[in-house]
Design a protein around this nucleic acid. Structure first.
Lengths: 132, 132
DNA sequence: CACTTCCTCAACCGATTGGTTGAATACCGA
DNA sequence: TCGGTATTCAACCAATCGGTTGAGGAAGTG
């Protein structure tokens, strides 16, 4: 993933169970790399890499006290995902509700599915991300 | 990603901008593979693959009318993510609020950061997913 | 100073990803 | 029956991912 947008980086970062678990543990409180690595059956370097991915996604930040680097969860970024999710969840829900109304109001002799081009999706929103 | 858990599959599926865009368009209404592929600068096969990933994640389902396979968004799965996100967002928020209280109530001569082992994270939740 | 602790950097490896081309399948229409 | 249209399957490819080992770098401690 080279220079992907924030949304992609965050989703991608959370696509790994180990990284999700790290986020879960950091939600409880800050922790050093060593402490974070302890429970897993993998090297500290591997965990360090995972933390880097989370940092690049903006999900965690690293402080500094002596040699230790206490990692801190930046929960604000999660709002980004929530916003994205809610948008389309709500949109789909709304659409479902409307379809429901149509079905309820519809006389029995009407074909419920037009044979071609259900909606005019071809002139739908352009493929570039809304980014808002 | 071989036989990953649902959460991983869904996050992973949404980590790609093209796939997110497809989800966005399917939120407006069902569409066939060809219709979905039209706006992108890539082959229909590539889009078909993307749709497969979304299907494996449970995000879309495919119907059938003649040769066409109208794809449908299954928005329910998004709730899974929302639940996960909200859990840790809330937890971090709560923790922040509590820290805030402590700082406000704290006399000035106390070191705000204990030199070692901030919380007892070593006995934190086990690395396996909560799955709840 | 030497020594240890905590962490990252670099190189490597096998598996997966996101795309391609080309062929196969399934269905409709003349 | 012969096309044409819609979709998938299969093989391939370069790039990325998640892990490893090994070698530092930075900071406290004897």
């Amino acid at each position: 993933m080279v220079a992907a947008d924030t949304l992609s980086r965050v989703f991608s970062a959370l696509a790994d169970p180990t990284r999700r678990d790290i986020v879960a543990r950091l939600a409880v409180g800050d922790a050093t790399v060593n402490e974070l690595a302890a429970p897993y059956d993998m090297t500290v370097q591997a965990v360090s890499k995972h933390l880097r991915v989370l940092q690049d996604a903006g999900l965690v930040s690293s402080g500094r006290q002596a040699q230790r680097r206490p990692m801190h969860l930046e929960a604000d970024v999660l709002d980004l995902l929530t916003t994205w999710l809610e948008r389309y969840r709500r949109q789909a829900e709304e659409r479902y509700r409307r379809l429901d109304d149509v079905l309820r109001a519809m006389p029995d002799d009407v074909d419920p599915m037009p044979p071609r081009h259900p909606p005019d999706l071809t002139e739908s929103p352009d493929p570039t991300e809304p980014t808002t």
